[in-house]
Simulated assay, not measured.
Amino acid sequence: MRKINNNAVICLDSTGQEMIAMGKGLGFGPMPREISLAEVERTFYNIDERYVAVMRDLPADVLDFSARIIDIARNELPYTLSPNAFLTLADHLAFTLERARKHIRVKMPLAYDVEQLYPAEYRIGRYALKRIQKEFRVGLPQTEAVGIAINLINARADGEPEPEQASSACTDSEMLEEITEIVENHFNLIVDRSSFNYARYATHMQYLFGRLHSQKAISSGNQQMYASLRQEFPEAAACAEKIAALIRSRWDCALPEEEELYLILHINRICIKEGL
């Protein structure tokens, strides 16, 4: 048994498996010692040792709140979250609350993209904001739901397969690379795959793939922009048509006009940043 803080310890369960146990005052008293189940409020298994040091400095109420939000997220999201998810979220929330109390606000440049492309994670983020208001008496702007959503997205367990990936004629990662090569060949450039704009574009493509696999098209009421956007960015539109043809040949599905609209925007953005 090893103390993390006054309310958390690393210990062994009855089968000899290591875990983190949380409960009021568990860290007090001589070590090692036996603790009863009545003293334990929560247990966590398979926590990376790197995150244990983070836990030492996090408030107990934030840790408990984060664990409850992650419990909800595990039921709501279609993928597995890392065992460390409650700690990374708690660390994020503790910093967010500290900023709010000091009246420091941070812009969320990906707010619209996250709301459109990650609706389940964004919904959990909005729910968390309401609970924070009630439990911590701290009002946070709605954009903070984006930060929580991104935290959940990043907490996806390593190796978790993409939806329907195994049944696809080519994997989503292979499709992303082929599409990026189409962009490079069409505009005669090299896309910087380490750039922020590429990460944004790649994220959009991954969720586009997910919608195509599940046959759930995006719906934001912007279809009327499609014709004007094609006129404004004809080269990006021509590139998007090549991508649509690739998707049709590989996966035998059509790219809806509204999906093509957002694709044109992302192609244009990435090309502008590459110097065109």
Results as ranks from 00 to 15, higher is better:
residue 1 M to F: 09
residue 2 R to H: 06
residue 2 R to N: 11
residue 4 I to Y: 11
residue 4 I to T: 00
residue 4 I to V: 02
residue 5 N to L: 04
residue 7 N to F: 11
residue 10 I to P: 03
residue 11 C to P: 04
residue 12 L to N: 11
residue 15 T to P: 03
residue 17 Q to K: 10
residue 18 E to T: 15
residue 18 E to G: 09
residue 20 I to K: 02
residue 22 M to L: 09
residue 24 K to M: 14
residue 24 K to W: 12
residue 27 G to M: 00
residue 30 P to Q: 07
residue 32 P to N: 00
residue 35 I to K: 01
residue 36 S to W: 02
residue 37 L to M: 08
residue 40 V to M: 06
residue 43 T to F: 03
residue 44 F to Y: 14
residue 44 F to V: 01
residue 48 D to L: 09
residue 51 Y to M: 07
residue 51 Y to F: 14
residue 51 Y to W: 13
residue 52 V to R: 09
residue 53 A to S: 00
residue 58 L to C: 05
residue 59 P to W: 01
residue 63 L to E: 00
residue 70 I to C: 03
residue 72 I to R: 07
residue 73 A to C: 12
residue 74 R to W: 13
residue 74 R to V: 13
residue 74 R to E: 15
residue 75 N to E: 14
residue 76 E to I: 10
residue 79 Y to E: 13
residue 82 S to Q: 08
residue 83 P to Q: 09
residue 87 L to Q: 00
residue 87 L to H: 00
residue 93 L to D: 07
residue 94 A to P: 04
residue 96 T to K: 07
residue 97 L to N: 07
residue 98 E to L: 05
residue 98 E to S: 05
residue 118 Y to V: 15
residue 123 R to L: 09
residue 128 A to N: 10
residue 130 K to E: 01
residue 131 R to Y: 06
residue 134 K to Q: 02
residue 139 G to H: 00
residue 140 L to Y: 07
residue 141 P to A: 05
residue 141 P to K: 02
residue 143 T to W: 03
residue 144 E to C: 00
residue 145 A to R: 05
residue 147 G to R: 07
residue 148 I to P: 09
residue 150 I to V: 14
residue 150 I to C: 09
residue 151 N to Q: 07
residue 154 N to I: 03
residue 155 A to P: 04
residue 156 R to C: 13
residue 161 P to V: 00
residue 161 P to D: 05
residue 162 E to S: 13
residue 166 A to D: 06
residue 168 S to Y: 12
residue 168 S to P: 04
residue 170 C to R: 11
residue 173 S to C: 08
residue 178 E to Y: 10
residue 179 I to H: 06
residue 180 T to F: 11
residue 182 I to Y: 15
residue 184 E to L: 13
residue 185 N to F: 14
residue 191 V to T: 12
residue 198 Y to T: 04
residue 199 A to F: 15
residue 199 A to Y: 15
residue 201 Y to L: 11
residue 201 Y to K: 11
residue 204 H to N: 07
residue 212 L to W: 02
residue 212 L to N: 02
residue 221 G to I: 06
residue 228 S to E: 13
residue 231 Q to A: 01
residue 232 E to A: 11
residue 232 E to L: 13
residue 234 P to V: 01
residue 237 A to K: 03
residue 237 A to P: 03
residue 242 K to A: 13
residue 246 L to F: 15
residue 246 L to A: 13
residue 248 R to T: 05
residue 248 R to H: 12
residue 251 W to S: 03
residue 253 C to A: 06
residue 254 A to G: 07
residue 256 P to A: 05
residue 257 E to M: 08
residue 258 E to F: 07
residue 259 E to L: 03
residue 259 E to A: 11
residue 259 E to T: 01
residue 260 E to Y: 04
residue 262 Y to E: 04
residue 265 L to W: 05
residue 267 I to S: 10
residue 268 N to S: 10
residue 268 N to K: 13
residue 271 C to Y: 12
residue 271 C to W: 12
residue 275 G to A: 08
